[in-house]
Design a protein around this nucleic acid. Structure first.
Length: 583
DNA sequence: ATCGTAGGCGCC
DNA sequence: AAAGGGCGCCTACGAT
């Protein structure tokens, strides 16, 4: 079966763009395609080109179980499909938590007990071979579970298996659609499933493309912060000791303190008259003037952070040919924010000048302004807070309404969303409850549910699980009422925040995937997603177009996502050569 | 030896 | 201003 024949086969069966098309891909083997009750195995060395052809012809919604680990074959081949349905991603939306598997998802969709999941057995010899298991060429066992040998990789052994696997993904997606229509999920959960799936496409591309890095500048900055590149292990030890000695010298000779051991550091601080509950930086900062040791320790920590986490090893491991690459996930296991490894989400400010556009390109940086309070206005529908979003600076009208300064208003609003209970914001919180009862009521209700151990749902329908694990049950059963209260309070804060953080993540992803789609014709690529910030790598001559596009995409995303029509979202968009130039 | 946890800190 | 929610990643340490 050649590429053209496969395209024709699909075109005959797929009518409208966006219609479901099951697919399973294995480079070197081929791909399997599934439409309703029909499957097509395609043996080919180059499955990506078949996908590209079908995409151009009918633009289906590609349905698959998950994204393979490692470089995504489509993204690596430069095939940018528009739509997909990622079964594992939708599962995470429906059930919360991150850890899952194709076998588990299948079992749950078929009402099979998760703890009855069959295992491969050692070397696959013990299980999965008896006659009771049925035909080994069929992916589903007579008892309804997926065949472990298939789950472990057998699904991609032949084009025929790929085709059967694609049919299963199609079936799983149909079952998920039914679940998405059930209470307590909102109607918009269907569209959340689609945007969250599209975010997986973006993640695959972010992994393959990487973030452009000026390696020379990166080396200069690392040298500045952590010293020269060590020649060998011995040299590295010397440099380490030299760093330590700058702090230890202040203590005087003969004092052996392990600066990497917090208990040791605590004891060291006690000898100079500082008895602190812990040695965290924000606590130490208050005592900078009490003893020169404190300032030296803080300086040491900063240098140590760069050299251990973002130093030479980090550079060698994650930056290749001018690109920083890490693994991307479209959602975490909590409220659903994107995650990234390799320092992509926590690169220290000092190193950000190294993030630079390549020759002939610029970076377009777009930052959502005050996203969380605006999202709170949207999800609660609080008319007064919605009115405040009309202002470029939302905190200003809030401050006026409460009769407090802008700073106090900001702390109070953030405190309400994070569950802060003490300090100056506590008083202003009363004012917020008076002025914005609907918004505060929504947060309060979430906190109560969370404290009681009940799951909550984001506006987009993501289930946020409250962790009621063995340990917290143990603590609750414990006689210590204080501990039980503090666990409940922590759950309350988590739920309160997850409602906002999760909703903001949903809006952000709708924005990001909209930009992804619209930016393609410009030759522009998203190279970084950072919770409320997008970084695009854009050919020089399309910079102005990209700036316009990003703003328009936010309006489009807000329209599609926002449950309240009048909430205003704003983005600051700048064109720069280096990431650090913005702001 | 290998694993999970805690303290710590980078970013949002 | 206070020290809250999330993540990844480092080290040391205690359990297995």
């Amino acid at each position: 079966m050649g590429t053209d024949a496969a395209i024709e086969w699909v075109t005959e069966r797929v009518g409208a763009p966006g219609a479901d098309l099951g697919v399973a891909i294995r480079p070197g083997v081929g791909l399997g395609i599934a439409v309703a009750d029909d499957v097509l195995p395609v043996g080919t060395d180059d499955p990506a080109s078949v996908v590209a052809g079908i995409e151009a012809a009918v633009a289906p919604r590609w349905v698959w179980f998950d994204r393979p680990s490692g470089p995504d074959p489509l993204a690596a081949a430069g095939v940018r499909v528009a739509r997909c349905w990622d079964v594992l991603t939708v599962h995470r939306l429906l059930h919360g938590r991150w850890r899952t598997s194709v076998a588990l998802v299948w079992a749950r969709l078929h009402d099979l007990a998760p703890d009855g999941l069959p295992t491969m057995g050692q070397l696959g010899l013990l299980d999965d071979h008896g006659d009771g298991d049925g035909d080994p060429e069929q992916p589903v066992r007579p008892d309804g579970y997926l065949r472990p040998e298939w789950v472990a990789g057998g699904w991609s052994a032949t084009p025929e298996r790929l085709a059967r696997w694609a049919a299963l993904a199609l079936d799983a997606a149909a079952r998920q659609r039914r679940l998405l229509g059930l209470r307590p999920l909102p109607e918009r959960a269907h569209s959340t499933a689609r945007s969250e799936s599209a975010a997986e496409l973006l993640c695959a591309e972010l992994e393959v493309d990487g973030l452009p890095i000026d390696t020379v500048e990166a080396e200069r900055l690392i040298t500045e912060a952590a010293g020269p590149r060590p020649r060998d292990e011995t040299h590295a030890d010397e440099l380490r000791r030299a760093r330590d000695d700058e702090v230890l010298a202040i203590l005087g000779p003969g004092r052996a303190v392990d600066l990497r051991n917090p208990a040791d550091v605590k004891a060291m601080l006690r000898t100079v008259g500082l008895d602190l509950p812990d040695t965290r930086a924000w606590r130490l900062e208050r005592h900078q003037d009490d003893h020169p040791l404190v300032a030296a320790l803080l300086r040491w920590r900063k240098a140590e952070r760069i050299s251990t986490t973002y130093g030479w090893r980090w550079l060698d491991e994650h930056v290749h040919a001018g690109r920083l690459r890490g693994e991307w996930s479209s959602c975490d296991g909590a409220a659903g924010r994107m995650t990234a490894s390799a320092g992509l989400h926590n690169l220290p400010a000092e190193l950000r000048p190294a993030v630079a556009a390549e020759a002939g390109h610029v970076l377009v940086r777009a930052d959502l302004g005050q996203i969380e309070p605006r999202v709170l206005a949207a999800v609660s529908g609080d008319a007064a807070l919605i009115a405040a979003t009309a202002d470029d600076d939302l905190y200003q009208p809030v401050a006026t309404r409460l009769g407090v300064t802008r700073d106090v208003a900001k702390v109070a609003v953030l405190g309400a969303m994070y569950g802060s209970t003490t300090g100056r914001s506590a008083h202003a919180l009363r004012g917020l409850e008076q002025a914005y009862p609907t918004a505060m009521g929504v947060l309060e209700a979430a906190a109560r549910a969370g404290a009681a151990g009940e799951d909550v749902y984001t506006i987009g329908g993501r289930r946020v699980r409250m962790w009621v694990d063995d340990r917290s049950e143990e603590i609750e059963a414990d006689a210590s009422l204080d501990r039980a209260r503090s666990v409940a309070a922590a759950r309350g804060r988590f739920a309160r925040n997850a409602l906002i953080q999760g909703a903001a993540a949903e809006l952000f992803k709708v924005w990001a995937v909209t930009v992804r789609a619209r930016a393609e014709p410009l030759g522009a690529r998203i190279v970084l997603c950072l919770h409320d910030e997008l970084l695009l790598h854009v050919p020089d001559e399309r910079a102005a177009d990209a700036v316009t596009l990003v703003g328009d995409a936010l309006d489009e995303a807000a329209y599609r996502w926002s449950p309240a029509r009048d909430v205003r979202f704003v983005a600051e968009v700048t064109t720069v050569r280096r990431w650090s130039e913005a702001k």
